[in-house]
């Protein structure tokens, strides 16, 4: 074996400052990257009409709008209970159906579990497709297909959330300790038994946490599904605004805020318990 060279600290700093050609090139590269990123941002600002003066000019209008919301019409709160409950119900069923859809998809989309590369690729594709179509677009589609009401809202949340959850599940499954899977396979266990004992216990805490996160998200999402006729409190919201009943709008927003806060609180308490 050849003798190893000991690392040497240069005697003075000056030696370190002398830049080699390679180092200069790296600096140039960094400058180019920063310049490019800045250019993209400026270009996008023009594309979106970002304008500080316009924002400032708009302040009086906003103030006017808010003043017309006051005082909130609390008298309608009792009429809001039913749509609020419906909103939470939509989120609950939407999330639960999503979990059922996402479990098989997530298993197939995990490289270490998928029985065949074709199935793996198919599952990945389906998950990507579900994720790329937002809840509102799904809601529009299902309202057209099954008619107005909360049910298309449930379906919309279920399909989009299945895409999100399936991806999370797949990632969690890909991160499990492969040794456990190997050990179970070595006992002669069936593939499904390997999943039940080797995969499920390892991913369970993350699985529950993801589902609760998704439930929180879906409650927020369900508050706007009504905008396209897919049930929940969003329908009251859009109606009040179309009729210029801004004090009603204010009361509805308060209701949404209270509901979302409550669900987030309960859900985070639950999550803290499982982790």
């Amino acid at each position: 074996m050849s003798e190893l060279k000991r690392p040497v600290l240069p005697p003075t700093d000056r030696d370190g400052r002398r830049q080699s050609g390679l180092e200069k090139l790296l600096y140039l590269q960094r400058a180019l990257i920063i310049g490019f990123v800045l250019a993209v941002y400026l270009w996008s600002a023009r594309g979106t009409n970002l304008s500080l003066p316009e924002l400032i000019e708009g302040f009086p209008h906003m103030a006017d709008f808010f003043s017309r919301m006051l005082p909130p019409n609390l008298a309608i709160l009792k009429d809001l209970v039913r749509p609020t409950v419906e909103t939470v119900q939509i989120a609950l069923w939407g999330t639960s159906l999503a979990v059922l859809l996402a479990i098989p998809l997530g298993l197939l989309a995990a490289r270490n579990i998928a029985p065949h590369p074709t199935l793996y690729a198919t599952a990945r594709f389906i998950l990507n497709a579900l994720r790329s179509i937002s809840e509102m677009v799904f809601a529009l589609i299902f309202v057209t297909a099954v008619g107005l009401g909360p049910f298309p809202g449930v379906l919309a949340l279920a399909f989009h959330s299945a895409g999100m959850l399936g991806k999370f599940y797949a990632e969690a499954i890909e991160n499990i300790d492969p040794g456990v899977v190997e050990a179970l396979e070595a006992t002669g266990a069936h593939k499904l038994q390997v999943i039940a004992f080797g995969v499920v216990p390892q991913v369970l805490p993350e699985f529950i946490a993801y589902n609760l996160y998704r439930l929180e998200h879906n409650v927020r999402q369900a508050t706007v599904l009504g905008l396209v006729g897919a049930g929940g409190i969003g329908f009251e919201l859009i109606t009040s605004m179309r009729l210029f009943k801004y004090p009603d709008t204010a009361a509805i927003l308060m209701m949404i805020l209270a509901t979302v806060t409550l669900v987030d609180y309960l859900s985070s308490r639950l999550r803290a318990r499982v982790i």
Binding site: V180, A186, A189, H190, F197
Partner: peptide
């Protein structure tokens, strides 16, 4: 053919008894 491993490869979150029962899955 039973097998044991350097890293034990037990299901950490399960009870000891459940881990042993894994050997009866077949």
């Amino acid at each position: 053919v039973g097998m044991i491993f350097q890293q034990f490869n037990l299901v950490r979150r399960l009870r000891v008894l459940d881990n042993v029962l894994c050997g009866r899955l077949y």
